[in-house]
């Protein structure tokens, strides 16, 4: 019986050893916490690039989608023959240089949605500080282009250095709640609602907000935002399914501001 017991023990230990070995043999990826980033106002491009690269590959969570070319444009090598991101960024939007384009793409990701991709990215400023975002911009610029991000960009962006010239980022805690009076129209733009729904007049794709408050209650509007596939507005049945069910992620206070604004459109 001792032999049997030892055989069973060997099978159990052997299985565990194999599973543990396999799990250790694959690439080891840890999901880092976005750390606070402190940079001086005379930060060098090399420091910015290093910080940006660390964030890009770590706590920033960028690699979940970018770099693969399936869920989001490939930012690491080439995308559809247009070259590295540092090369192509300046040519994406007329009138916007590389730095502006990349920054806008991070804080307002649906502004310049690359053709063929769904609007799945959320505003990076929800989880990253201003300094962190600029560091990632610098890193992306360095991939085939010239780094033009400087310490002045942090100051311009509200990350002004305290006396002593040190630029300290805000804690990486997300800003999920309102920090001041909410502007519903600005929210409609920020969350790209206005891309499909006009505030007044004819709409590009979905029903206009004009008069919507006389047709729907605030509860119905809220439900339609949180679950866009639940029902379709009259004459827009064919559009059912186009609106993505991603707006449940926006802060409740902002959602409420949007709902009340739409409900007031009579």
């Amino acid at each position: 019986m001792l032999k049997t017991n030892l055989s069973i023990l060997a099978v159990v230990i052997g299985c565990l050893a194999v599973f543990t070995w396999v799990a250790n043999a694959i690439p080891q990826l840890q999901s880092d916490v976005p750390e606070d980033l402190v940079l001086s106002d005379d930060v060098t491009p090399a420091e910015l690039i290093a910080a940006g690269e660390e964030l890009y590959n770590g706590g920033g969570g960028c690699t979940a989608c970018h770099g693969l070319g399936e869920r989001a444009p490939n930012l690491l090598t080439d995308h559809a023959g247009t070259g590295l991101i540092g090369e192509r960024c300046a040519n994406r939007v007329p009138g916007e240089d590389c730095k502006q384009y990349l920054h806008t793409s991070m804080v307002d990701p649906n502004a310049y949605l690359v053709e063929g991709f769904a609007p799945i990215m959320l505003d990076a400023s929800r989880t990253l500080s201003s300094v962190q975002i600029w560091a990632i911009v610098a890193y992306l610029q360095s991939l085939g282009g010239e780094v033009t991000v400087t310490g002045a960009d942090f100051a311009d962006d509200g990350g002004a250095a305290p006396a002593g010239g040190v630029v300290a980022s805000a804690p990486a805690a997300p800003v999920l709640g309102p920090t001041g009076p909410l502007d519903p129209e600005e929210l409609l733009t920020r969350y790209t609602c206005a891309t499909c729904h006009a505030i007044s007049g004819p709409s590009p794709l979905g029903p206009s907000y004009e008069g919507m408050g006389s047709r729907l209650t605030a509860d119905e509007i809220r439900t339609s935002i949180l679950d866009p596939t639940a029902s379709a507005a009259e004459n827009f049945e064919a559009m059912l399914g186009i609106m993505p069910p991603i707006f449940g992620n926006i802060p409740a206070a902002e959602l409420e501001a949007i709902v009340q604004f739409i409900a007031s459109q009579r």
Binding site: P27, T63, A64, C65, R71, I120, P244
Partner: peptide
């Protein structure tokens, strides 16, 4: 995925992508 696309991507294609191979 319905709850949060990014959470879904983290699970299937993010840092956990190798987990599904295991």
């Amino acid at each position: 995925y319905e709850f949060n696309q990014q959470m879904g991507i983290t699970m299937m294609g993010g840092f956990m992508s190798w987990l599904w191979i295991i």
